Amino acid sequence: MSREATGGARLSRAAREQQIMEAAAALAVEQGCLPLPLETLGERVGVSKALVYAYFPTQQDLANRILVRHLQEMDAAVDLAFQAGSPRETALSCAEAYFDHAARHGPLLHLLLSDPMAAGALAPEARALYGRIMRRMAIGLRDHFGVPSRDCIPALHILAALAEDAGEQVFTKRLDPELGRRLAREMTDGALCDLSARLQRPPRGLAAS
């Protein structure tokens, strides 16, 4: 087997970092939590544990670098979603973007944003990107539901969970990609209709005007 096939080829720093981050992301999804066994990570890349540390001095640094890379991907996808047209189509396109990410990478974003080790040490860039994405999607739902953005946050988490679940089914090969995409869109559309009725319902005890 060649050195390149085993990961032992001499790579540029950027290429090696990318190689380590891709292997680390896959390993994190496999085990479902952090920290990562760096000896195993090094073996997958074909480098020593010491070299992994040379590129990423702490596990938090590695997690943040992976998170920023994937949040940038989602940020670009959300930008495209906002070109979809109507608020409803924008919401559906955002859900599809998250479905696509989960179908390719599994629950990686959810894991990195919820794992105590990673979430407790978010880098400023990661925090800012996550905040931007959430604000933009909340604004999109505000335009759809006609209620303040802050009231849309619970709905946003519900819709994201639907898209993520369908994407994970595709990631684990339990669902055909095209069927998964269609189901994600249909479930999101149904949830949008149901949530619209609930969010716009008058408070209990108030008579309809």
Results as ranks from 00 to 15, higher is better:
Gly190Gln: 08
Ala50Asp: 15
Ala97Gly: 00
Asp165Gly: 15
Glu4Val: 15
Arg88Ala: 12
Glu30Arg: 15
Leu206Met: 04
Ile66Tyr: 00
Glu125Gly: 00
Pro154Gly: 06
Leu108Phe: 09
Gln83Val: 05
Arg104Val: 03
Gly8Thr: 10
Arg174Phe: 00
Arg136Gln: 15
Ser114Leu: 13
Ala119Lys: 07
Met117Ala: 13
Phe99Lys: 06
Leu80Gly: 12
Glu17Asn: 07
Met1Gln: 09
Ala76Glu: 10
Glu39Leu: 09
Ala184Phe: 00
Ala166Val: 11
Thr90Met: 14
Thr188Arg: 02
His144Thr: 05
Cys94Gly: 02
Ile66Ser: 01
Arg16Tyr: 01
Pro35Met: 11
Ala119Trp: 05
Asp79Gly: 14
Ala76Gln: 12
Arg150Gly: 05
Met137Leu: 05
Gly140Asn: 03
Ser149Ile: 07
Pro87Lys: 00
Pro35Ile: 03
Gln18Ile: 04
Gly8Ile: 01
Ala123Glu: 12
Leu71Asp: 03
Glu164Met: 13
Ala5Val: 04
Asp176Val: 15
Leu34Lys: 07
Met74Ser: 12
Val47Lys: 04
Glu73Leu: 06
Glu125Thr: 00
Arg10Ala: 15
Val147Ala: 06
Phe56Trp: 07
Ile20Ala: 13
Asn64Arg: 00
Met187Ala: 14
Glu30Trp: 06
Leu112His: 01
Gly131Cys: 01
Leu129Asn: 08
Ala102Phe: 07
Arg88Gln: 11
Thr58Met: 07
Met117Thr: 08
Asp151Arg: 12
Val47Ser: 13
His144Asp: 07
Ile133Trp: 10
His157Glu: 03
Ala9Leu: 04
Asn64Tyr: 00
Gln83Asn: 06
Ala15Thr: 10
Cys152Ala: 08
Leu179His: 01
Gly8Arg: 11
Glu43His: 12
Ala24Ser: 14
Arg136Leu: 02
Lys173Asp: 14
Leu41Asp: 01
His110Asn: 11
Pro107Trp: 02
Gln169Pro: 03
Met134Val: 14
Leu199Phe: 04
Arg16Trp: 02
Leu183Glu: 15
Phe145Gln: 05
Ser209His: 05
Gly205Asp: 08
Met21Asp: 00
Pro116Thr: 05
Leu11Met: 06
Ala207Pro: 02
Glu178Lys: 13
Leu156Ser: 08
Gln200Tyr: 05
Pro124Cys: 06
Pro154Val: 01
Ile139Lys: 04
Gly42Cys: 03
Tyr98Thr: 05
Met21Trp: 02
